[in-house]
């Protein structure tokens, strides 16, 4: 199991509590999360399924380049943190 968590700023717009989910990659973990709370998906991914341009993903505290983020492998106990990129203001 891994943990998916979101910047508290997102909770202003949509309920997005931290959750423990199954997943061997960031994409799998997010899919599992969105299966439980579908409303969060469109805040994190665009309609083509890519991580939004000014959203940034950290795995265990390390920033993952946006275009590789979804395929980033996870380990048992990993923490996926979805944050706002400062490039977005």
């Amino acid at each position: 199991m891994v943990t998916v968590e979101f910047t508290k700023n997102l909770a202003r717009h949509v309920e997005c509590p931290s959750k423990r989910v199954a997943g061997a990659t960031v994409a799998e973990a997010l899919d599992a999360y969105f299966a439980e709370i579908p409303a969060v998906k469109a805040y994190v991914l665009d309609e083509q399924g890519a991580v939004r341009h000014h959203v940034v993903v950290f795995v265990d505290g390390a920033m993952v380049p946006r275009k590789q983020a979804l395929s980033e492998p996870l380990s048992e106990g990993s923490v996926v943190s979805v944050m706002q990129a400062l490039s977005g203001g």
Binding site: H13, V14, A39, A42, V44, E47, G49, R52, G88
Partner: peptide
């Protein structure tokens, strides 16, 4: 919403409360 993309909201009580709807989006 900047980082979080575009959202569509609807109110049926003159703006007192809002509900988020699916936003228009390109097909994949």
């Amino acid at each position: 919403l900047g980082h979080w993309g575009v959202k569509m909201q609807r109110s049926r009580d003159d703006g007192a409360t809002w509900e988020e709807l699916a936003a228009p989006a390109f097909p994949a």
